[in-house]
């Protein structure tokens, strides 16, 4: 996938929107709040979704520090902020639906907390090749499965208005993500493989993987709870493989690893994968929150308020 990065950057700059562009008090709230069946599940789902956006934002912040290309750095700086905007907008929806207790942030689940901790400690040390290969997977899963599903389930027009804007941003994110995935595959395969082998025994990355896997399984459980067909996730993973499977992408061992992992994750019959990872979910569930350090200060930048 070839992309003119300069034009993309200009397009991104020309396509900005703000929370204030949406009327958060427009009618339609009761389409969610009057549905006692949907409400608690949607609350959990929205909290996950909003946290994933926020975590993605931090990932882009790390990428911005990594890329040697000025234009790409600027694009990632924007994506960092845009993912934050998505998290903010999703919080604004939660606020509209009375899902925020007081003014505070929705409580992150323990797996989110672990990923946040990991990102804060190590994301800036990860090479572009790791981040640049994981992020498209997260993005395509969000864009291809979660958001579409949400829109089918929730009828509130304000939710649709917000996601129309969010999805337009995501289309640009995906364009850049897969462009970079392709570029990353352009150095010699043996060198990439060696570098990956070296990285895979880096404890910092291993901890990251240990934080990331249970989060995905927990997300999947929450989704199924809400009524998402797992087939939708399959589709998203297949799309990652299809879109990312360019000549460059295929040469990128991280892409190979991640798309293979995606296959394991959506296949519940793969006991070799799911038994230990589900055990991890349970295990992490037992970590007493007081053992975790304070959330890093970047988390407190989240807000549902359109003006400050």
């Amino acid at each position: 996938m070839q992309l003119d990065l300069d034009r993309m950057r200009d397009k991104i700059k020309a396509s900005q929107w703000a929370l204030a562009d949406i009327d958060w008090d427009a009618p339609g709230r009761e389409l969610v709040t009057n549905d006692p069946d949907l409400y608690p599940k949607l609350k959990a789902f929205m909290a996950d979704l909003m946290w994933i956006e926020h975590v993605g934002a931090r990932g882009f912040a790390a990428m911005a520090k990594k890329t040697p290309n000025d234009t790409l750095r600027e694009i990632y700086t924007y994506f960092h902020a845009e993912e934050q905007r998505h998290a903010n907008a999703e919080m604004a929806l939660m606020q509209r639906w009375g899902m925020l207790d007081g003014e505070g942030l929705p409580e992150p689940n323990i797996n989110i907390r672990l990923v946040v901790e990991w990102l804060d400690a190590y994301a800036d040390d990860m090479p572009l090749s790791v981040l640049g290969s994981v992020i498209p997977m997260l993005e395509i899963a969000l864009d291809g499965a979660l958001c579409k599903f949400l829109l089918e389930t929730v009828k509130d027009p304000v939710c649709h208005a917000a996601f129309e804007k969010i999805n337009a941003d995501e289309a640009r994110h995906l364009g850049v993500d897969f462009h970079v995935l392709e570029m990353l595959g352009h150095s010699p395969v043996y060198r990439q493989t060696l570098q990956m082998a070296g990285k895979l025994i880096d404890p910092r990355l291993l901890i990251g993987i240990l934080a990331y896997l249970p989060l995905l399984n927990r997300m999947r459980d929450n989704l199924v709870e809400l009524g998402l067909k797992e087939e939708r996730l399959y589709e998203a993973i297949r799309k990652y493989r299809r879109v990312g499977g360019t000549p460059g992408g295929l040469r990128n061992p991280w892409f190979q690893l991640i798309s293979r992992h995606g296959g394991w994750m959506v296949n519940r019959r793969n006991r070799l994968y799911h038994v230990p990872v589900d055990a991890l979910v349970r295990l992490t569930g037992r970590i007493p929150p007081r053992l975790l350090p304070q959330v890093p200060s970047w988390v407190h930048e989240l807000t549902w308020k359109p003006t400050a």
Binding site: K13, Q16, A18, L19, Y78, Q84, A89, T307, A308
Partner: peptide, 21 residues
């Protein structure tokens, strides 16, 4: 440190979606 998206009648809108009045 959010990039500035645009100035608005009442302040500065940054890319994270907030209008800083």
């Amino acid at each position: 440190t959010w990039p500035i998206a645009t100035l608005s009648p009442r302040g500065i809108r940054t890319v994270e979606g907030v209008e800083h009045q």
